[in-house]
């Protein structure tokens, strides 16, 4: 991505959140002592919540780009429930909640209203979980894309319906155990279906901007929000946010797990404008999917299969094949990383 690569070597590169050796103008928004904190302390998200972190990262960047003139529509889901138990709110942005399925439609209405009022300085963001986006809200979302409404939609993908107790969504990875895809029988966990890649579907609408991002790479995420805000019309961002409770990981490992998802190739980080891919975040240290899957108890059955009496090699290989395909398809391996990995 052009963002992180613009600055040269400074002690730790630019992989850390801040860097005292950098000029203020190129430091991250999150490193600012006076950052906005769009999502305030005291919210009721679980310890180590990736979604709470991702939302603060993204909205602080959007607030920055919109000079504080931002309205947000929020779908039902953890993000809504943990932030606004009546009458308290954690939001420090103008924020509206309606239903599980219609955040994009509500946002379309907000954008239309602002246009009528001549307040084109006010920018609109819609946000929701993967369930609200790739499943139940999908029709509304596609409509918003097709009409090219002036909204940035951000999906926080934690790969299941977490708020209601970890049910499978169409963003749940194959083999994962959820409340509705238990790890029992000869094919435990979620099925190996066709998959449903909403960033690619969004691209197929030809909208101005589509990007994936991860809480594991703040600078990339901030860069993409800023870039998205430079466009008018429909924009889509898909942010990977691990859920310690739903995935079965230690609360301290949220960023580590997100990083591994990227580095194994299962969560490719790409960027597209008007339907064409224009950027990719290359892997720094490619790892086997094994390493990633092992960190999470939702995949534990792959490594101690009751049925097979040990490792479920076939399914692990299938997962690796998905990662390999992503790496090849999106060109995620730089020559340098390939050299390092082979060494």
């Amino acid at each position: 991505m052009s963002g992180p690569q613009r600055v040269k070597f400074y002690q730790t590169g630019t992989f850390t959140v801040g860097n005292r050796l950098l000029d203020i103008s190129v430091r991250s928004i999150q490193s600012d002592a006076d950052r906005h904190n769009s999502l305030n302390s005291g919210h009721r998200a679980c310890q180590g919540c990736g979604e709470a972190l991702g939302a603060r990262y993204a909205l602080d960047a959007a607030m920055h780009a919109a000079r504080g003139q931002l309205v947000v529509a929020n779908a039902t889901g953890c993000l809504e429930v943990f932030s606004t138990p009546y009458p308290e709110s954690s939001w420090r942005v103008a924020w509206l909640h309606s239903l599980f399925a219609n955040a994009s439609s509500v946002a379309t209405g907000m954008a239309a209203a602002m246009k009528v009022k001549g307040r084109t300085d006010v920018r609109v963001v819609a946000q929701g979980g993967d369930g609200g986006t790739v499943d139940i809200g999908f029709g509304c979302l596609s409509g918003m894309f097709e009409r090219n409404d002036d909204v940035l939609y951000i999906c926080y993908d934690n790969e299941a319906y977490m708020n209601t107790g970890v049910q499978r969504s169409s963003a749940t990875p194959p083999a994962a155990r959820t409340a509705t895809t238990p790890a029992v029988g000869p094919e435990p966990g979620n099925v190996f279906g066709q998959g449903k890649n909403v960033p690619l579907i969004a691209m197929a609408h030809g909208i101005p901007y589509v990007a994936t991002a991860s809480v594991a790479d703040l600078r990339d995420l901030e860069y993409k929000v800023a870039r998205a805000m430079e466009f008018r019309g429909a924009r889509y961002m898909h942010v990977h946010v691990p859920c310690p409770l739903g995935w079965g990981t230690p609360t301290s490992d949220t960023i580590k797990v997100a990083r591994m998802a990227v580095e194994c190739g299962l969560f490719p980080i790409v960027e597209a404008e008007y339907g064409e891919i224009i950027g990719r975040r290359e892997l720094r240290q490619r790892i086997p999917v094994d390493d990633y899957l092992r960190t999470q108890s939702r995949f534990a059955h792959l490594f101690s299969s009751r049925h097979l009496g040990g490792r479920d090699e076939a399914r692990i290989a299938q997962m690796q094949a998905i990662a390999d395909r992503n790496i090849a398809r999106f060109g995620l391996m730089s020559a340098r990383t390939a050299e390092k990995v082979n060494a």
Partner: peptide, 18 residues
């Protein structure tokens, strides 16, 4: 500590004061 801001950035609860 070399003031890289990582703790300040990664806390989901904004519980680190810079």
């Amino acid at each position: 500590c070399f003031e890289c801001d990582n703790c300040y950035g990664v806390c989901p609860d904004n519980a680190v004061i810079k």
